[in-house]
Every structure is written in C-alpha cells, then in structure tokens.
Design a protein around this nucleic acid. Structure first.
Lengths: 338, 338
DNA sequence: GTGAAAGCGCTAACAG
DNA sequence: CTGTTAGCGCTTTCAC
C-alpha cells in the first residue's frame, strides 16, 4: 500500500507472457485460435500479476459487460430498498452483476436531468441495460435496453412495470365502505406521480359509486413520507366533522396518520380506521398492524429485471407493460366506525 | 425511440457547434480560455443533442469522476441494507454519486476473487474510491482509496471501520448474568469472520470471569441467518440441561432462536431469554421485542464514507481504524431465569 | 496462431 | 483563444 503500484494493464500481462496485447485479449475472452501453450502462459501471467480488465476500457470497445444498471433517486426509503431487494434476488444465480446508482444531490428539480445524465453516462459502455425507478422524466433519449419501474406517467415510450394502483385503491375503498365508513379521508402522494394519481382516482371512483359527494376537506396532499401523513391527519382531526377512516396513498403516510392519531389521543381502529398502500415491511410491525394493499414492490423489481434481460438478449417482449397485481392485506388498523 | 439513434458523443457536439473536440471538452469541464460566444454555442449544441459525457471514457482519461463505489456481497439482507442506508445518507448533499455493486454468483468460494475483480474493474476509471463491505479476502492489490467495513480480520492493510464487537458482547453477557443466568447458550456466526469471533470471545471471557466452565453443548455454529439460529436453538432445547438464556451473535440468528422457542412452546422471556446483536430494524418489531446490542451499522457506513472522502481528497486520516461504539438496547426478550 | 494497426470517447500537452 | 497530436486500456479487423 505504500508505493503507488499501478493496477496492471493488459499491456503488463502481454509483456510478462511475452506475447502481444491482442493475444492476451483473446484468451481473456476465450476466443479461438490461441495455441494451448500460449494460452497457459498468458493465464499464468494474469494470475501472477493479479490482472483484471477494466470495466471502462472494455465497455468502451463495445463489448458486453454483463452488468446491469439500476438508477434510483435514493437508496434510503423503504420503497427503494424493496426494489433493490427484488432485483438483487432476481440477479442471484445469473451471470449478471448489479450496479446501482444514486445521487448525492437531492433537490427534486435536479433529479430529472440527473436521471438522464446517469443513463447516458452508464449506457452502452459500463452497463448492458438499465432499470430506472420512479423516474421524474417521462421520456428518455436512449435506445439502449431500458425498463422503467412505476413511471410518472403511463407512456408507452419505454417498457415498464407498474402496479395495479387503480384496482388496489378500489379494493381498499371497498373494504372501508364495506365496514360502514362514509366519511373517508385521503392522503395523497407526490403530485403528478402516476401511482399517486391512480390511487386518488380509485378513491374518487369508489366514492362516486356510492353517491358520496367528494369533500375537498377530506383530501390532503401528502408527500409519500411519514411527516406528510402526520400533518394531513392533523388537518383532518381539526375538522368539525372529521373522517372515521383514512386511506393513505402509501404506507409511510399511513404510519404518519397513525402517529398523529396517538398524538391526538385517538385509538386505532376504534376511533379511526387507517389503511395504507404498498405493504412495506414496517407496516406489519406497527401497533396496531397496518391494514394495507400489498403492491409487491420487490416483485416489480424482479419483473423489471426479467424484462431487461429479454431486451438485452434480444428476445421479444411479451408485452411492453407489465402490471403487477395487488392484494388487500387485512391486519388490525381498520374496524367499523364508532 | 423507434430508430436506433446512437447516443451523441463529444464528436457530435463538436460538429454541431462547429468547433473542435477539445473545445467542447473545455466547456464541459469549465476550463478557462474559451470565448464566451463559443462556449454559448457549445452549450447550445449540448442541450439540443442531449449530450452527456460517458463515465467510462472520461474515467479512462484519468479524470476524477466524483463517483464512489460500494462493493458488497449482497443487497438483500438487513445488514447490507443498513450499510447502504448509512452511506446513502452520508452521500446526500455532497457532490458525490454512489455506485453500489453486487454479484449474481453467490457461492462463497467465488466471492473472494469477485471482490478483487470488482475493485480492479472499477477503480481508477469509474470510481474515485471504494468502500468494501465484509470482505472475504484480507488484502487487496490496489492503491486506490479504499475503506473496508467490518473486515474479516483486523489487518492494518486497509483503513477500516469496525464495530466494538468485544465490548458489545461483554455488555450483552453482563446483562444476562446480572439477571441471574448461568447456563447461557451461544449461537455463533460465519466462521472466521472477525466480528463473529470477537463476539464469541466476549462470550467466553464473560463466562471465565464468573468461573463458569465453557460447555461445548452450549455453543452452536450458526450462519448469521435466521435458519441457523432456529436450528441451533433446537439443539439447545433437546439438551438434558437446556440453557435459560441464549446470546446470538446477530439479530437474525436471535430471531431464529425466538422462532424455535415458540415452535417448542417456550415463552420468551419467561422460559428463555434471548439477546441479539446489531439492532437491525426488525429486532424492534419482533414479539417480544428483541433485546440486543446496537451496532449502528448505518453509522459504520457513514464513517466509512467520511474516511473515504478524506483519502480521495488527500487529507490525512485521523486514524486508520475507526471503531464504532456499541450500545445495549434493552427491550422485552430477557428476564430472570425461571 | 499471432502481431500490427485502428479506433471506442475523452482529456492533457502542446502549438499556433 | 482554439485546433492538432497523443494516448488512456481494450477489442476488432486484417495481414502475415
């Protein structure tokens, strides 16, 4: 470690083995036309020098790298973690390595360009294909294999994996109304995010089906984070006629609503029913355990990986859009209205 | 998206802006000596073409990439996730991007070489420095900035971040013996992993301090996973004189022990006390909540990032080994022996 | 079978 | 201020 011993290059190997650079390249890639003896000498040199080819250089020459890229805005929230888990599992046992990138700058307005940047910085050279999670942008200037998970808008521009948001929201609302709730609050997610919109749509449609007028006071704009749910709930509680149930557009928000409920001295589900969306691991451990709509995020990750491999290997895609079904998970946070 | 429009290169930009390639490179890197007018024309072309420089090509030319690499054997288990979280948080707000790699091939014997491979494949070109998590290998052939998290053995070869495993284990054991336990089982971790060894050492030393003979029947070799804990516990329960408490070398094993306890009809902590190590998020949600030693894995990740940045930016390291302290978290899984 | 030459996209050193 | 020349580490023709 003391002296700066530069990483051995293919050149060093060639020298050590007394052959030319292309020959080393050939044995590296198991090409035909190398004498067994020569190959052995090269292998020997590789071992001795501890040589390993540079991903960058190799990729630049157009060769496949057997690495797939995952680009996501953060690797901190449960949603992101679950996607990573799914893809990580899918990668296991394949020849592919997984390369996940996330950015330091967290300002939303920088995100869109960041995504685009990363795609181009990586594509074609470093990775063979890319999975993009919850992209801010809608369209991408690339023709490399690219699969989008849970896009903003449902464009057919890229092959994508989406959740059955509308159906899931309908199931949640039906469950709540079936329990007898009529005043139901909704905590939304990031504005203009497709998944959030669809869940909202499920909310309004369910209300309409029962001829319940949409009360603007009962619709709060959250941010898909715990704090947003907390604040939204506080607004609800301050109402003259507060809701008896809250449908939050994702679990983190729902957990925030529950936090607000205990802070306000309300008991869940006795005084307030709460239902979430996503079924992130934490939802099973809240007190009471959160009733939610399982969106199987990790399954979305796995599906995205499968699609990407099809694309990379040039096999035809069954469909450009893969919809992952949703499932109502009934736990302890909902009951009949008091 | 229909036609294969190849990614624009610096060349295309140069053409479009009617300048030479190096000029484009200059404006790209905010170098001095470009006429404002020319620069504007280049910027214009960049925008129109949606150009973004290739990480691979840029890195190959020796320039800094402002990307730091994270190499880990998996991105699925809680431990790995926590490390990612910590580093991801540390990266936030800095100019660095984070690139995390995992491999598809999961066989342990392939791991050692895989790590070495990745380091060389990435270092110097694609990333400015690397954080390596729980490496199998002990020494690395690289002179690039490299920080190791929780290494196998405590070698001084690389700057590293380690947990206070011995102290933590001592705290756990003291707590158990303070409660009155004398027959305490130990579920170990992956053999030869330094952290597991140190925790075992804490176990034996605590026993020795109380003049309790080490009973081989009470020491099981786990694998740091839930199943291993489960099986180890079953062995304990089958003993003529089963332990009244179990110290598991990590939380996942401890959770497995609790699973086995309920399967055997034992109540925790009434019939059996269980204590873990790590304080992964799940441990707070088990029933009963797991008493454990907080190892602040995400803090280890953050510390590793900080050290790496020092290395990259050429600032002197305070110390080559950073030890992250440990803290006993008392929850509900331990009590006095029956 | 093997080496020489060319070029991937980019930047650094030099001219002009 | 800007263009020309070289070369990073590697693979791919194409000769020999």
């Amino acid at each position: 470690m003391s002296r700066r011993r530069p990483k051995p290059t293919i050149h060093d190997v060639a020298n050590a083995a007394q052959v030319s650079v292309p020959t080393v390249s050939r044995v590296l890639n198991n090409r035909y036309g190398v004498a067994p003896q020569t190959a052995a000498r090269v292998q020997q040199a590789i071992l001795e020098l501890g040589y390993e080819s540079s991903l960058a250089a190799r990729g630049m020459r157009g060769a496949r790298t057997d690495v797939i890229g995952l680009i996501m805005p953060d690797m901190d929230h449960s949603y992101a973690i679950e996607v990573i888990r799914g893809i990580s599992r899918a990668v296991t046992g394949t020849k592919y390595d997984l390369l996940a990138m996330t950015c330091g700058r967290k300002l939303p307005e920088e995100r869109g360009v960041w995504e685009q940047q990363q795609i181009q910085r990586l594509s074609g050279t470093i990775v063979d294909g890319i999975i993009l999670v919850v992209p801010d942008a809608d369209e991408f200037r690339t023709d490399y294999p690219l699969v989008v998970v849970d896009p903003y808008r449902q464009s057919t521009a890229c092959p994508s994996v989406i959740g059955a948001n509308l159906e899931g929201a309908a199931a949640a609302m039906n469950y709540l109304t079936g329990l007898g709730h009529r005043r139901i609050g909704f905590v939304g997610g990031v504005r203009h995010l497709q998944s959030a919109e669809r869940r909202y749509q499920g909310y309004t449609e369910a209300l309409a089906a029962l001829d319940i007028a949409l009360d603007p006071d009962l619709v709060a704009t959250g941010d898909f984070e715990r704090d947003g749910g907390f604040m939204a709930a506080q607004q609800f509680f301050a109402l003259d006629d507060p809701p008896t149930a809250v449908f939050a557009a994702n679990d983190e928000s729902a957990l925030g609503v529950m936090d607000a409920a205990v802070a306000a001295g309300l008991r869940v589900p006795h005084d307030l029913s709460v239902i979430g969306f996503d079924n992130v691991p934490e939802s099973a451990f809240s007190r009471p355990a959160l009733t939610t709509v399982d969106q199987s995020i990790s399954a979305m990750g796995e599906a995205a990986f499968d699609m990407l491999i099809q694309l990379i290997e040039g096999r035809p895609l069954e469909s450009r859009i893969k919809r992952i079904p949703t499932q109502l998970i009934i736990r302890d946070s909902c009951g009949a209205p008091a």
